[in-house]
């Protein structure tokens, strides 16, 4: 959806026409869900985070100043909620749940089914390594490469400076590479 259209819909909602907001929920739910699921490793948690993100955004819609894309603003709210979820999980001393991941240690053969298995294993390793990254680096990497935000938008969403965003991404990529190398060498 064009940003100008997004702004029109937000204005309409603020002027008493909440119906116009519904298509924004439809448009941005997939991106928010994807981010939250990869941040928390849990689909159930992601669902709750997306819901709460929209509730909070709607309540404080008047504070959205339009200087950034609406989606970046939503990402900012979602990231905070993911951090809260991370803190809750740490307090409950429960490891992050990685759902529906194939066993990364089985050796694939050479047929087409085996290729698919190999691809799934590769993806599972990447997801696992992502979850093991420090939270700040994980947020920055997901926003940059999964959600394809510009560096400035990553910085805005995370409320950090441009150079800090760049550094988080670089360090995150470095750690991710190390983690993958170790896992691929071990499989």
């Amino acid at each position: 959806m064009e940003e100008a259209e997004v702004q029109r819909r937000i204005r309409a909602a603020l002027e008493g026409d909440p119906e116009r907001f519904a298509p924004l929920v439809e448009a941005y739910t997939p991106a928010l869900f994807n981010l939250a699921a990869k941040m928390t490793g849990s689909r159930q948690e992601a669902e709750e985070i997306v819901q709460e993100t929209f509730f909070r955004a709607y309540r404080s819609l008047g504070k959205f100043d339009g200087r950034t894309r609406f989606l970046s603003w939503l990402f900012g709210i979602a990231v905070n909620l993911c951090r809260d979820a991370g803190r809750r999980n740490r307090r409950a001393d429960s490891a992050l749940a990685v759902e529906d991941l194939p066993d990364g240690t089985a050796s694939p053969g050479s047929g087409p089914a085996d290729e698919r298995l190999a691809a799934r294993q590769e993806e599972a390793r990447l997801r696992l390594c992502l979850l093991r990254l420090p939270e700040g680096q994980r947020e920055a990497i997901l926003l940059r490469y999964q959600e394809e935000l510009s560096l400035a938008e990553v910085a805005d969403a995370l409320r950090i400076g441009l150079s800090a965003a760049k550094m988080r991404i670089q360090r995150g990529l470095g750690q991710l590479k190390l983690c993958l190398e170790r896992r691929e060498a071990g499989s």
Binding site: E19, L126, Y145
Partner: peptide
């Protein structure tokens, strides 16, 4: 690889449910 990592899709009807809940909330104010 990060870009191509498969996306986690929301359960069907999630957006509709959220939009419905929002409609029941007090209108946002400036």
């Amino acid at each position: 690889r990060l870009r191509r990592l498969s996306r986690d899709l929301p359960p069907e009807g999630l957006a509709g449910r959220i939009a419905g809940d929002l409609a029941g909330m007090p209108a946002p104010s400036l």
